[in-house]
Design a binder for these strands. Structure first.
Lengths: 248, 248
DNA sequence: GAGCGGCATTGATGTAAATCAAAGGTTGAG
DNA sequence: CTCAACCTTTGATTTACATCAATGCCGCTC
């Protein structure tokens, strides 16, 4: 099924027609953020040998809910939306994966959500069985995975508060503040603007709102001089307002 | 700070004035459901030696968000609500812990939520540092904890769909179906009624609704002959209706 | 640079659930 | 048994957000 340590994924498409071995992990710019930060140089090079680069075009699907999880991924560039859909078309986005985020924490055979590339995406891909065997032998990697999982759980609980108890305005403010923090962490320094590569519909599906409400609230904030809308994102004008209004 | 393996918790109250060593784990009725099912007899007896029974009266607090997490708990009897509160009093209940559930998966020093006893509660308590050391040395216990964490994460995502995208009627139906499944698992067999030891306000705070809406929807379901309200719970009349309406 | 397709915005209207406001029930103390 | 405290239920009214319906605004392709 594969040769020379390179393997293919049944549902791979887009720019992903061929694979190259992973770039050198030692120079990986998001390593400090990722599960790999738990590893020493020897382990890192072992992991590197069993990894492959994967690229996904904007709008392509990394994997679908219910698909068998042959691979796990470390996102190295771009943004992925994690989606749960109801049979009648209603969607809830449970999260956006940014560089450094790991997809495949669960130890189950099948994916519990669909992952779609919001922008062009690059990821470090591992064959699941190999990765699991490795983490079985490396307690600090397993521990790191567990830390990631419990951190995600805490974020999920924050998001429950947001979905269940915040107003539309508070939801948008919380989302923007969170995105600002996350991008700052990924980029390593504060940017003037807050990147919003996802569309208004995605934001709506993440916050449990409609696209019209998201548009209205953001534009009202602009009229109220709280922010300015710029290409590919927004810029805070009144940062205090946002810190005060973001509760989750 | 403690003697003969028995330790005290700074915030322990209620019926918890003194401790006895844990009951015999071999006869623990919820072991098959708990993290302990990963352990062999030797490990179990080691764990038993480092555990203590804890009891909490109805309405008492097991621990508060931000408190330092000195202990971790395995719930053996009763129901605990896990609460996140906003400064203005709005509450979101992120989950109800039933027998077999574990509190303390996170590896962080402080609790990320408040835990309150809905009924009288019994729990198997471990000193956190001891438990962590033990799981560090026992990969399959760590793995089991990780399985619990990722399972919780998946449930949290289900709950996000519920909070963000379901109607009040769908939320109630989903809640009832879930409680039925969970109690059946805990009791080991199907009961005629679905126990609802928590009050209407708790259900509302779990589903992101108000108490009035919860009351109205449940009573409307009764008028529509979908269920009957009984002391301490409800009974399904039209189980098909619920299976069909519960989406998360 | 005309036309098209895919978002985003804006306005008018509708509605599910919140809020406000009383009653009813149930429990337990005295 | 009576009373009080605390839930829960029910009804009337309001409202935040959804829905329905255009219109505007790019960035493509040809």
């Amino acid at each position: 099924m594969d040769n020379s340590g390179v393997f293919t994924e049944p549902h791979a498409h887009g720019a992903c027609g061929h694979h190259v071995l992973g770039d050198d992990c030692r120079f990986c710019s998001i390593r400090r953020l990722s599960v790999c930060s738990a590893l020493d140089p020897d382990e890192l090079s072992f992991l590197e040998d069993m990894s492959g680069d994967a690229a996904f075009e904007e709008k392509s699907t990394l994997f679908r809910q219910e698909d068998e999880a042959f691979s796990v991924y470390n996102i190295t560039a771009g943004v992925v939306r994690l989606v749960r859909s109801l049979s009648d078309g209603r969607r809830q986005i449970t999260g956006f994966a940014l560089p450094g985020d790991f997809l495949g924490l669960a130890l189950e055979k099948s994916w519990k959500f669909t992952a779609e590339a919001v922008t062009d995406v690059k990821a470090c891909r591992f064959k699941r069985s190999t990765f699991d065997d490795f983490s079985e032998k490396k307690p600090h990697l397993m521990r790191r995975m567990h830390e990631f999982a419990t951190h995600e759980l805490s974020l999920a609980q924050d998001h429950m508060v947001l979905l269940g108890r915040l107003t539309a305005e508070e939801k948008i403010a919380s989302f923007l503040v969170t995105m600002k923090r996350r991008w700052t962490r990924v980029e390593g320094h504060e940017l003037g603007l807050i990147r919003l590569p996802m569309g208004r519909q995605d934001i709506a599906d993440y916050l449990g709102l409609t696209i019209e409400t998201v548009s209205r609230v953001i534009n009202q904030m602009q009229r109220d001089r709280k922010l300015v809308i710029v290409p590919d994102g927004i810029r805070f004008v009144d940062a205090d307002y946002f810190e005060h209004r973001a509760l989750a």
